[in-house]
Amino acid sequence: MRKLFGYSKEILLVLLAIVFLSPIYIIFVNSFKDRQELYDNALSLPSSFSLQYYMEAMEKMNFLSAIANSLYVTILSVIIIVVLSSMTAWMLVRTGGKWSTIIFMTFIATMLIPFQTLMMPLMQFMSSITSNLNIPMYNTREGLIFMNVGFHASLSVFLYHGFIKSIPITLEEAATIDGASKFGVFWRIIFPMLKPITATVMILNVISIWNDFLLPSLTLIDVDLRTIPLSTFYFFGEFSIQWNLAMAGLTLTIIPVIIFYALAQKHIIKGIGEGAVK
């Protein structure tokens, strides 16, 4: 009897999780249905798995170009964030002094600034850089990457800073006596030791940059520069009445997230936990 009770608890837990994820099931099954079938019963399995709506949605969303843009922006932003913020955090911890404290405190304090407070002046400033200095900040993917780095610098420096403080300094001193340059010491000795926190920094930034809508919507104007959230937004603006097409589009946008989750599930959950607790 006790065992039976135990099993039912197991099953209940999985049932709860399934009910919790039912919206994803709903958009998935309806992405195969035609209009009539969709209105008859939105919960049933489709009568056939035709990819017709997927092909159509892919074309209308410009999906392949959107995914290429999202990958380009996310990967480059995250690499630059990891490189620059780990270097900065290491210098701030190891040098100490008044300046390091001021810089670190500024990073922390700005974490409280909401994006809406910065968006308009940022756009003004970026377009004035574009027109006055001829540096293409506005309406380019590289400009967006630049801004992503700026916005994610605070949290990343903060996370690295906390981790580096816990590493004993003796190792570095030995290497410095050996005559290695600061650059060599950092990349050959320190950076490999930062692996766990680098994973956390990467995961937090990937999630935030991949899903970001507002910043890219303000900076990217050209249609062929759109990232996934942007193309989903414009796609919905045009086709919101055609739900089966919309479902196929939504399923497409979730697939990369599921792949990412399946590949790095353990790291993601661990990284989120550590990122929050710090």
Binding site: G6, K9, E10, I11, L13, V14, L16, A17, I18, F20, L21, P23, I24, I26, I27, N30, A42, I207, W210, N211, D212, F213, P229, T232, F233, F236, W243, A246, M247, L250, T253, I254, V257, F260, Y261, Q265, I268, I269, I272
Partner: peptide, 30 residues
């Protein structure tokens, strides 16, 4: 300490990874 708890944890965390914009559209239909 249930055997299915790891699976459940994985599933329950999932919505957080899907961006807010896309979640909103999914729920519009729901």
């Amino acid at each position: 300490k249930l055997r299915t708890s790891n699976l459940a944890r994985t599933m329950l965390f999932m919505p957080y990874l899907i961006g807010g914009l896309i979640l909103g559209y999914i729920w519009q239909f729901v």
